[in-house]
Design a protein around this nucleic acid. Structure first.
Lengths: 228, 228
DNA sequence: TCGATGCTTCGGTTAGCATCGAAGTATGAA
DNA sequence: TTCATACTTCGATGCTAACCGAAGCATCGA
């Protein structure tokens, strides 16, 4: 009777407050156990288990058994992109869960978007990468240039590993706080991992915020200069 | 307690099948009456009225009184973009409302995405515009070049009117069938209007599909050539 | 083998909301 | 004025789904 895809199923999956809380928690990028997710959502373990099985059936999350723990994570990058764009829309319309709190500035400055860097720093990084001609392309079709490949390898990123996987290397993701694009894809993930491994930045506990250290700030400014 | 925007409210708004049907109907770009929307959703007028007031309170749609009719339309471009990205996700995961029907090929070829062209033709048009250097930019930051401005004016598009408005002129929108970007924004809208005004294409009744005429196909191929 | 932990499944309760009939309001036509 | 159309509001109903207690299953350590 009706044509096209069915957005209602996904909408109702995200539409429940408990499930939405779990999904935003998983946007932090870390895999979490059912007990942890039940805590953040403010519900009992039984209820959480029911929600998690629904989210898994809907293909939004996946689970990995490890000992007697069961770790849940977002299914793939696409889910992260969708959630971020939903957050962007919600933030712009003033759908906030509490009046913007103290953590808000830190979140807007730099945060984890599933597996890559978002916020002001994320947007600035993509701007710089494009200005420095590391990445080229229009629309959502971003490609790593030859000079860019050299620079990334010099940073210690194993490009052959990135291209071997089936995931796209460069991808845009709409930032909810900046309302502009930042870098997603396997390269975006590799760069965030680099920052954390080098000790340039640390993840806040129980938050998506990313805090840069002093040297981290300097290295970031050196690696990703802005044209103007 | 929780940080960041609340996606659950929007999710639950879209999560109801009746409301989702109405929203997809409104993605056709035409403003529709409450009676028409009740028909497409398969519910009575009273129920539809209740849903419509909820959608309006949530800022997803707006209404315009005209005589004893009340015309409903999507609130703005952002809603269209959000719905299209949701459809892309749903289509990719196989959330379809009925096994892909006979209208499906036509929809994938060319359709209306709220107020601009989508589908294979929409994606090809943006590809061509970038290749011909009418539009430049990376990520979501598209800009009309000087030569591009000349070409668009030659087509009969009033650029001063587009730039006067507060809406962005060029914008990307992720196509659910092609999973690539097509052109949105006021320029995208102006181009679709041009096709329809010139008689190069016609909108199907009761569908988002756009059917190009013989001369329309030729003009489209002439105006938007592909590099390869 | 026993207990502890982590999670799922089952059963029953409850609350919210979609739904529609009926009545009320506004606009237009006769 | 009177009737018809378009839509909203109210009130009642019924169904779904979120929720939790209790029991069951799996894994780990002792």
């Amino acid at each position: 009777m009706k044509e096209g895809p069915d957005i209602a199923q996904i909408g109702s999956l995200i539409g429940d407050p408990a499930r939405a809380n779990m999904l935003t928690a998983l946007m932090g990028g870390k895999a979490l156990t059912a007990t942890e997710l039940a805590g953040t959502a403010g519900i009992t373990l039984q209820t959480a288990s029911s929600h998690l099985s629904k989210l898994e059936a809907g293909g939004l999350i996946g689970q990995r058994k490890q000992g007697r723990h069961r770790y849940f994570a977002l299914a793939d990058d696409d889910v992260g992109l969708l959630l971020e764009s939903l957050m962007g829309f919600a933030a712009h319309r003033g759908f906030t869960r509490h009046r913007t709190g103290p953590k808000d500035p830190a979140l807007r400055k730099a945060r984890v978007c599933y597996n890559h860097l978002a916020g002001d720093y994320g947007v600035r990084m993509l701007d710089s990468l494009v200005a420095e001609e590391v990445i080229a392309g229009a629309g959502d079709d971003l490609t790593l240039t030859e000079t860019g490949a050299g620079k990334m390898t010099a940073l210690g990123i194993d490009l052959s590993a990135l291209t071997r996987s089936r995931r796209p290397v460069c991808r845009t993701c709409l930032d909810w706080s900046e309302r502009r694009s930042h870098l997603s894809g396997s390269l975006g993930q590799a760069l965030l991992t680099l920052f954390l491994d080098k000790g340039w930045a640390r993840r806040e506990t129980d938050s998506r915020a990313v805090r840069f250290t002093g040297t981290g700030e300097k290295e970031f400014a050196r690696l990703f200069p802005l044209p103007a």
